[in-house]
C-alpha cells in the first residue's frame, strides 16, 4: 500500500461514531475516504460548514460551496452553514472532537510546527493555530521523515510553532505514537518494519511499553 494510504487508513480507525471532525488540507483530507463501516462522522470546514460532502459532478458545480482548501464540494442532507466567527467559536470552544493535520516537526512535548520555515516568506497559518488550540483531539498525519530521511519527530521543534503541547497522537507510515505527559509512547509499528528501524527514523526518545502492536 502507498505510504499516504496507509497513514490515512490508520488515522481513520481513530474515528468514533458521532464525531465532528476537521480534516486539514492535503493528505488529511483523504481520511474521509476510509471511514470505517458503522461509523457516522460529520466533517467540519472552518470556512463555515458542517456536513461536507464529496466533490461535485461537473453538472453540480456551485461556486458558493467550497471547503477550507478552496475546493468545490457538495452538501449532504443535514448540512449547516454559519459564519467564520461561529465556525471558530465552535473550534475554540472545544466542540470539534478531532482534527487531523500534517506537520513539518512534532516534538516530545506535543509541540507542533506546520506552517512556515525560516528564510521563506511567511504565507500564513490560516486556521491551523485555532484548530490545534481548540480541538479535543489533535492527530498529526505525516510521513515519518523528510524526503532526505531527516527527522520530523524531534526532541524539541526548531521551526516556528503552530501550537505548544497540542498534539495527542502521531500517525506515520512506520508508527503510531501517543504524546503523553512522560513523552512519546510507541503504540504500534507497521507490519513491514522493525522497532530498530522506527527508532532510527525518530529524532526523539520513544518509550515502549511491552511489544508494540502492528498495523
Amino acid at each position: 500500500m502507498d505510504k499516504r494510504e496507509r497513514i490515512v487508513t490508520r488515522v481513520a480507525r481513530e474515528l468514533r461514531d458521532g464525531d465532528y471532525v476537521n480534516l486539514g488540507i492535503g493528505m488529511p483530507t483523504m481520511v474521509a475516504n476510509h471511514v470505517p463501516a458503522g461509523v457516522d462522522i460529520t466533517l467540519h470546514s472552518e470556512n463555515g460548514m458542517l456536513g461536507v460532502g464529496p466533490y461535485p459532478l461537473e453538472s453540480e458545480i456551485d461556486p458558493d460551496l467550497v471547503n477550507a482548501g478552496k475546493e468545490i464540494v457538495t452538501e449532504l442532507s443535514g448540512t449547516s452553514y454559519f459564519s467564520s466567527a461561529d465556525s471558530f467559536a465552535m473550534v475554540r470552544g472545544g466542540h470539534i472532537d478531532m482534527t487531523v493535520l500534517g506537520a513539518l516537526e512534532v516534538d516530545e512535548e506535543g509541540n507542533l510546527a506546520n506552517w512556515t520555515v525560516p528564510g521563506k516568506m511567511m504565507k500564513g497559518m490560516g486556521g491551523a493555530m485555532d484548530l490545534v488550540a481548540g480541538a479535543k483531539r489533535v492527530i498529526v498525519a505525516m510521513e515519518h521523515t523528510t524526503k532526505d530521511g531527516g527527522h520530523k519527530i524531534v526532541k524539541t521543534c526548531a521551526l516556528p510553532l503552530t501550537g505548544t503541547n497540542v498534539v495527542h497522537m502521531i500517525v506515520t507510515e512506520l508508527a503510531v505514537i501517543d504524546v503523553t505527559p512522560k513523552g512519546l509512547v510507541l503504540r504500534e509499528i507497521a507490519s513491514d518494519t522493525t522497532l530498530d528501524a522506527v527508532k532510527k527514523a525518530t529524532g526523539a526518545t520513544l518509550h515502549v511499553d511491552g511489544e508494540p502492536g502492528r498495523f
Binding site: E46, A85, S87, F88, V91, M122, G126, G127, M129, D130
Partner: peptide, 9 residues
C-alpha cells in the same frame, strides 16, 4: 498575519 479564528473574533 492573524490566525483565522482570532481574525474572526
Amino acid at each position: 498575519l492573524v490566525p483565522q479564528g482570532t481574525l474572526a473574533e
